[in-house]
């Protein structure tokens, strides 16, 4: 066991963990900004912009607001970052080497919730009314999208005959069936909400809440948040690729799938106005919930009668 520790450390810290994910994540966040700019007839930022932003934030003073819960205020971004780091390392290992264990899809779900919880903790620790409103919205949003996301994964599990092993699930291309497609679309929207992109950027709505949950963060702590968000931009689409689109069987195909999901997210982001929190909850619970119940039934029937396309 002991002799493997250096290798685990290498996985987590260098490849495919921290350094690799951060690199990809920052490039992906550049793609998001650049494509948004092109849609808006602008030139947009240069490739190294996200890197410089992080570097600059690291060089700035970190202000801690008076009246805040200091320990929690510092811990929250670290919790978020650690969770995403674990998640992305795990997913990359599954994608590249099929290193897996039974039930890892459930671990993935938990790791995906952690950053949102950390955000809630951090912003409520920062003692600001705007952050407080942002917090309450983020909480409602988490409640709204976690249920459909879990249901979407239930569809996946049914389609794979009760398989809880992500590497096994990644062998199948579930999206080429009615229930799989429905589940994929809903999961895509849940990821949109998890990433805090329009139309679900309700918690960070800068015009309503002056930056919302992150309003009191500055300097290095803000840089950690930004890094965690950039890494989410890698981990969450990667999860979708593994769960729905058949994983990284061939490297270039896997990359193409990842880019496809990124482009879909950006397009949704740029063609929609922000939803109101009650509208978003209704959307996730009523419409997505209904679609998913249908998908679960279809998947069950398809499984029972052996009809693949249902």
């Amino acid at each position: 066991m002991m002799e493997r520790i250096p290798q685990y450390l290498f996985w987590i810290l260098i490849f495919p963990g921290f350094v690799f994910t951060v690199l990809i994540g920052l490039v992906a966040s550049w793609v998001v900004r650049k494509v948004s700019a092109l849609v808006q007839w602008r030139v947009g930022p240069r490739l190294y912009q996200p890197f410089v932003d992080i570097l600059k934030l690291l060089g700035k003073e970190t202000l801690v607001p008076r009246g805040s819960q200091k320990a929690l205020f510092f811990a929250a971004p670290l919790i978020a970052m650690t969770a995403v780091l674990l998640l992305s390392t795990m997913l990359w290992r599954i994608a590249f080497d099929r290193i897996d264990f039974i039930g890892d899809i459930i671990v993935a779900i938990y790791l995906m919730v952690l950053p949102s919880l950390a955000l809630i903790l951090g912003s409520s620790a920062s003692a600001s009314p705007h952050a407080a409103v942002g917090t309450s919205r983020e909480m409602k949003l988490v409640l709204a999208y976690e249920l459909p996301l879990a249901l979407a994964l239930v569809v996946i599990v049914i389609k794979n005959g009760g398989q809880l092993n992500l590497a096994q699930i990644a062998q199948n291309n579930v999206v080429f069936s009615i229930s799989g497609l429905l589940a994929f679309l809903v999961a895509l929207l849940c990821v949109q909400a998890k990433l805090g992109f329009v139309p679900f950027d309700i918690a960070e709505a800068e015009t309503e809440l002056a930056g919302g949950v992150l309003i009191e963060y500055s300097g290095a702590l803000l840089a950690i948040w930004k890094l965690a968000q950039a890494m989410m931009l890698v981990a969450l689409p990667l999860f979708l690729v593994l769960a729905f689109l058949g994983g990284f069987t061939v490297l270039w195909a896997g990359i193409a799938k990842y880019v496809l999901i990124l482009v879909l997210l950006i397009l949704i982001k740029n063609t929609n106005p922000r939803m109101r929190i009650d509208q978003a909850m209704k959307f996730f619970w009523v419409y997505c919930g209904f679609a998913l119940i249908l998908a679960v039934v279809l998947a069950g029937l398809g499984n029972y009668y052996g009809i693949g396309w249902l």
Partner: peptide
């Protein structure tokens, strides 16, 4: 107004 409801594309156009 587009910007306020998170419709930045409209704002830019």
């Amino acid at each position: 107004a587009g910007h306020f409801i998170g419709y930045d594309t409209v704002f830019m156009w």
